[in-house]
Structures are given as structure tokens and as C-alpha cells.
Design a protein around this nucleic acid. Structure first.
Length: 627
RNA sequence: GGGCCCGUAGCUCAGCAUGGAUAGAGCAUCGGCCUUCUAAGCCGGGGGUCGGGGGUUCGAGUCCCCCCGGGCCCGCCA
């Protein structure tokens, strides 16, 4: 907003001296002023002149009497550096931020538009491990971001309640004598995943007879056998309830739970299949290895075409995962004539209703046309996701709205893997998590480890605090630490989990952000909160830097809305906190005698608190007032 | 074999989408700063052929090509 004003002012100045397409960017170093133009370089070629001369001429010609924020322009080595009147600029920034408060950085570009985000989608037979947590945190941050940008965002969680992984645990409960109640009072999702799933999987590998039994059970579930389907649904819901506790602990919200088995019963596929046939996208293989299968013709696809066509319907008439996902994708894009029915399953901690698909449900909730459909799924599914998108394209749908938000997986460091009994190969540096093999670190386990460590520190710092307060603050810090560390790295980079590294609470971490927030709160607490946006004649460099960063925020948010580069937000949060830390060290607020100056600095702290609070909420790190 | 991704300080990573001025953080290490707003902090030192080579450009960590190293995907599984 204010930065935009500044940039357009600089652009206007350049246009007045004849630059048709002014190039303006924020200066990378304060020595070069606030904004810089490289227009002289761009013009140098066509004019065949020295860019330094061009820049100098512009600088001489620019008339600053019409400028409001800009008070000087100088040419340096071809660059045009614009400096601002800090009294005006800072006042404008502070008025904007304090005036808008929690709305600062929001925009209305999403107004009246819908975005559908699907994330989490963990098989309902186990507890969430840290890899799943990366998905949850990324997906939830997208939800927060687009809500902030004014979109109506619907969050889906796809529950695959009908795969082999369910047959595994049903086999355990039904025929191998695992009790339905966790023996040691453990959480059901953890018990189901850590004990039943892992042990049954191992036994199946050793015993072909059990594999046969599992196949039979999978079929019974699929056919909605009274006994098996009901037990399956019961297990699924029990696990899901526990899984959601972990997700909520991370701060994630959901609106709709889509059960695979329910989706299948609506048979969206047959409709989609007909359409695929009609447009000539699929054909039946008459001979060869895939005889009897219906295949999606990929020959028109630049990349996928080289890898052979994709089976959608197997020779026994059943559909593949990709086929079902195409049907489901068509539903998300609003292209199916039938829609699901729902019932209210429960309320989340923020008292929002969570709907679950139910063939006998009486709630209808048409999604309507979405601007974007974002599917948060790890990068290994890049190819199948592209197949789905391409199929939707062939169906004539707006497939460019269908976005696979891919991210690299979280793996275990060898050190941590060895701790849970893994035997590494020589030279191996990490090992992929595996639910079936019991190779993972649960999200709650890691959060609890973090929390215990934080509690020690909190108790030491605040001997007078009640145990409840210690608990409450430690929980926020633990969650903040985990969320930040999962969101911070580029989604193209694998995270190799190192528990020791993860437990560090200094430097570029979530707690650092919360700490600087808390420090700002302490200052504000000790004033009457009387502030003034009227700036002194001279600002110290640390003040300028803080205000400068604050002014960038709306553009950062808007950029991320375009690029989906979430880490840009965490990056920004760190820079902002860092700028404040330096301000805090160098710039006294309460201990200045000049009342007007004190009031101005209170305004600066207040503005910082607002902006950091806003960005923290975006990335799901809870602001902490005291720590 | 085909495709995609990664490679920046001892370690973990920003910066690359939209090329711009001496390449930045954190951790680790060494040295400073708490009778003054929370030291989960701040300041400073050491540490870099931005994997290698070519190209485009006034200008390349950033764009293009080739190569090397590592990872992932390519199933009548989901």
C-alpha cells in the first residue's frame, strides 16, 4: 500500500521526463535510497548511449516539486536512486498499519471468489507422522493465506477408508485377536498404526495365507458387507477423531471430510467415463499385455506420452486410483451432475462445523465454481496428478485451475532411524518414513519432546507462573517451532528430520519470532499506549529499517498469493522479527525523555506488533504475549 | 532407458519465478555486550572457484545448453 504509493510516485516522476516503461524496484541497500530505477540501462541499448549519462540527465530533469514522499533523486553508475522524506513516509506507514490493524496486508482480490484446498488426507489407520505434518502445515497456511486475501476457502480432507491398508488392520482386529481398546490407554490412532498395522503387515509378509485373508476382507469392505463394512467405518472414525486432534493441535481447520467409500457409492466415475469415451480420450486395449483394460490416451501429452498410456479400468472392470481421482477432480471442478450428501460429524475447537460425506445424510453443500482447486500432495505423486489434470483437460474442463501443490517428503536422519531400530546401509544418509514398517516419528511425539524442553526453560524464566500458564505457553511455542520448521524450507527440498536439531530454540526458529513479539508486548504493556505518528526530524537507521520492512508486507502477501511460495512468508516474518530485535537493542522507547519522541516510538512498536501478529497468524505460529 | 527435482560457508538453508551495485542468515567456532523496555537477544572475527564447463547480456548465484554428483517417479497398488 504505502510501498506501492512510493513506487508509483517514482514511476510518475520518470514518466514526466519521458520514460515510457519505468523500471522501479525497492533498493537492496539503504545507501541507495528507498527505491531504485534501472531504466537507464534498459534505454542505453536502444539509444546506444552510456547508461550513466542517461541516468544523470534524468536526475537533472526530474522535478521533485510534485513529489510527496520522494525528496531526492541521484544518479549513481547508471542507477537512479530515490530517497524519501522519512517524516512523511514513516507517518504514512504508521497511520496505515495502526489504522488497519489486523486487516493490514489484507486485500480484496479474492472477494466473491472461491478456492478449494485439499490437504492432510492421511490413511485412517495410523497416527500422523512428521511427514504428514508438513502436508498439514503447508495446506493450512494456504487456507490462511487465501482467506486473508479475501477468498472463500473450503478445506477438504480426503479419507481413503477402502484401501488395502484398512484391510490390514481389520484383519488384525477381527481375526488376529487385537483388542479394540488400546491395552495401555494409548491413543487409538497410535495404537492402530504403531501396533496393529505394523505387526499385521509383518505377519502378512511372512504368511501368504494371511495375505489371502486380507484380500477377502478388502473385498468385503468394498461390497459393504454388513459386518466388515460397519467395523471398518467404526475404526476409521475412531482413528480420524484422534488424527484430527493432532491436526487441530497444529492449528489446522477443515470443512469437509470426503470418504472414499462414499464417493465410490455415488459412482461419479461412470458419468466421467462416458464423457472420456465421448471425447475420445480413452480406448479399450484389444490385445497385448493390457488387453481388456481401458486406457487414457496420453500420446498428445508432451511428457507423459513417452511413458505409455494410463490404465483407468482394469481388465476385471474395476477402476484404478487415477480413474477415481479423475472422477473426484471432475467433482471439484463442478462437472458432475450428482453431488454428495453430508451430515455434521462434529465441531472443531473453533466451533466450526465439520461435514462428512454420508449416503444417508441430509445436508447438501454445492461447492460452486472455484477459482482454484489446490491439492496438497507429496511430490512422488507428481506424475499421477499430471495424468489427472490432463484427463480433465481432455474432458474440456478448466484444468489450469486444478493445481497439484507438491512438496518433498520428510525423511529420517540415520541417527534418528537407528534410535527406533533401523539398520542402515553403509553410506546411507537418510531413510524414508514408512507407516507399514514402523519407520517414522509421530507428530505428537515430536511436539511433546519440544514441549517438555520448552517447559524447563519457561519454568526457569518464570518461577512465579502457575503450571497451567507454563503448559499453555509451552504448547504454543512447541507448535510454533514445528510449524515454522516445516514451512520454512523450499517445498522442493527434502527435510531430513534431526530431532536434536529440531529441538533448538534459538536463531531462525518459530520461538525467535514469538520472542520478539513478546518483547514488543512488554514495551506496550508499560506505556499508556498513547502513541503519535508524528515523526521526529531524524530517524535512526534501525527505525527506518523496521518501518521499511513493515511497508513491504502487503506486497509480500500478494506475491505469495500468486506464486504459492509459502516460505516467502516465513522468510519475511524472520526478517521483520530480526529488524525489530536490532531496533530493540538500539532504540530506547520507554527511556526517552522527549514525550513526543516516546509516543512516536510507541507507535512504531505497536505497528510492528500488528504486522508480526498478522504474518504469524498466516503461517499458523501463535503469537505469544509473554515467554 | 525416459521424465522431474536438488547441488550456495564445516553443517542446515535464504537469495533464482520478475538478471542489476561489495553473495546473506541460522547452527557450530572465537571474542565482546545484562544496576536501562525479557540475553529464547544484540554486536564483531574467521569461514565462499554460488557442483563443473560453455553461451546470452552493458551486467548471471539468478536465463539457455552440455556434463558431474545426489534424490524421486515411470504397477491391471492406493
Amino acid at each position: 500500500m504505502v510501498l506501492k504509493k512510493l513506487i508509483s510516485e517514482a514511476e510518475a516522476l520518470l514518466r514526466w521526463v519521458g520514460v515510457e516503461k519505468p523500471l522501479i524496484q525497492p533498493a537492496r541497500d539503504p545507501r541507495f535510497g528507498e527505491v531504485t530505477s534501472t531504466s537507464a540501462f534498459a534505454l542505453a541499448k536502444s539509444l546506444r548511449r552510456d547508461p550513466r549519462k542517461i541516468a544523470e540527465e534524468f536526475a537533472a530533469k526530474i522535478d521533485l516539486s510534485n513529489a510527496r514522499l520522494i525528496n531526492s533523486v541521484v544518479a549513481v553508475d547508471g542507477y537512479l536512486n530515490f530517497k524519501v522524506d522519512w517524516q512523511r513516509y514513516s507517518e504514512e506507514i504508521l497511520k496505515t498499519v495502526i489504522g488497519q490493524g489486523e486487516d493490514y496486508g489484507k486485500s480484496n482480490i479474492g472477494l466473491g471468489k472461491k478456492i478449494i484446498i485439499e490437504h492432510t488426507s492421511v490413511n485412517p489407520n495410523k497416527a500422523l507422522h512428521v511427514g504428514h505434518a508438513r502436508n498439514v502445515c503447508l495446506g493450512d497456511t494456504l487456507y490462511r493465506l487465501f482467506s486473508f486475501l479475501g477468498y472463500d476457502v473450503v478445506v477438504l480432507n480426503y479419507i481413503d477408508d477402502s484401501g488395502t491398508q484398512m484391510a490390514d488392520v481389520i484383519l488384525g482386529f477381527k481375526e488376529l485377536g487385537y483388542p479394540l481398546e488400546p491395552p495401555d490407554g494409548a491413543r487409538f490412532d497410535a495404537y492402530c498404526g504403531d501396533t496393529v498395522y505394523v505387526e499385521v503387515s509383518r505377519r502378512i509378509e511372512e504368511d501368504p495365507l494371511l495375505a489371502e485373508k486380507r484380500r477377502r476382507i478388502a473385498k468385503l469392505i468394498e461390497e459393504r458387507d454388513d459386518e466388515y463394512y460397519r467395523l471398518n467405518r467404526e475404526i476409521v472414525e475412531k482413528v480420524l477423531k484422534e488424527q484430527l486432534k493432532t491436526c487441530w493441535r497444529l492449528g489446522a481447520r477443515y470443512h469437509i471430510l470426503n470418504m472414499e467409500s462414499d464417493i465410490l457409492s455415488y459412482d461419479l466415475w461412470s458419468e466421467v467415463f462416458k464423457k472420456l469415451i465421448r471425447v475420445g480420450a480413452v480406448y479399450k486395449a484389444e490385445s497385448g499385455q493390457k488387453a481388456g483394460c481401458w486406457l487414457l490416451n496420453l500420446s498428445g501429452h508432451p511428457v507423459l506420452g513417452r511413458e505409455g498410456d494410463e490404465i483407468l479400468v482394469k481388465s476385471d472392470g474395476s477402476t484404478t486410483y487415477v480413474a477415481r481421482d479423475i472422477a473426484y477432480g471432475a467433482w471439484k471442478l463442478g462437472d458432475t451432475s450428482r453431488d454428495f450428501k453430508y451430515k455434521v460429524w462434529m465441531r472443531d475447537p473453533w466451533s466450526g462445523e465439520i461435514l462428512i460425506t454420508d449416503v444417508k445424510g441430509d445436508i447438501e453443500k454445492p461447492l460452486g465454481e472455484a477459482e482454484k482447486v489446490i491439492n496438497v500432495i507429496d511430490i512422488r505423486q507428481k506424475r499421477p496428478q499430471e495424468v489427472v489434470r490432463y484427463a480433465l483437460e481432455l474432458m474440456g474442463l478448466k484444468s489450469d485451475k486444478y493445481i497439484h501443490f507438491g512438496y518433498e517428503v520428510v525423511a529420517l536422519s540415520i541417527k534418528d532411524a537407528v534410535k527406533i531400530g533401523y539398520e542402515p546401509e553403509p553410506g546411507q544418509e537418510f531413510v524414508h518414513m514408512s507407516g507399514r514398517r514402523g519407520l517414522y516419528v509421530k507428530t505428537d511425539t515430536l511436539l511433546d519432546m519440544l514441549k517438555e524442553k520448552i517447559k524447563l526453560e519457561v519454568r526457569e524464566k518464570h518461577p512465579g507462573w502457575s503450571e497451567e500458564k507454563v503448559e499453555e505457553v509451552s504448547e504454543k511455542i512447541a507448535v510454533g517451532a514445528l510449524r515454522y520448521s516445516l514451512i520454512k524450507p523450499d517445498t522442493d527440498k527434502m527435510i531430513i528430520l534431526d530431532a536434536d536439531e529440531m529441538l533448538k530454540l534459538e536463531g531462525d526458529t518459530g520461538p525467535y519470532l514469538q520472542y520478539s513479539y513478546a518483547r514488543a508486548c512488554r514495551i506496550l504493556e508499560k506505556t499508556t499506549r498513547e502513541y503519535s505518528t508524528k515523526a521526529p526530524v531524524e530517524l535512526v537507521e534501525e527505525e527506518k529499517q523496521l518501518l521499511r520492512r513493515i511497508a513491504y508486507f502487503p506486497e509480500v502477501v500478494e506475491d505469495v498469493g500468486e506464486s504459492l511460495l509459502i516460505k516467502t512468508l516465513s522468510n519475511y516474518a524472520y526478517m521483520l522479527a530480526s529488524d525489530f530485535s536490532r531496533f530493540y537493542e538500539k532504540v530506547p522507547v520507554l527511556h526517552v525523555d522527549d514525550v513526543e519522541l516516546r509516543k512516536f516510538r510507541v507507535a512504531e512498536v505497536l505497528a510492528f506488533k500488528i504486522v508480526l501478529g498478522n504474518v504469524l497468524r498466516l503461517i499458523g505460529v501463535q503469537p505469544v504475549e509473554e515467554m
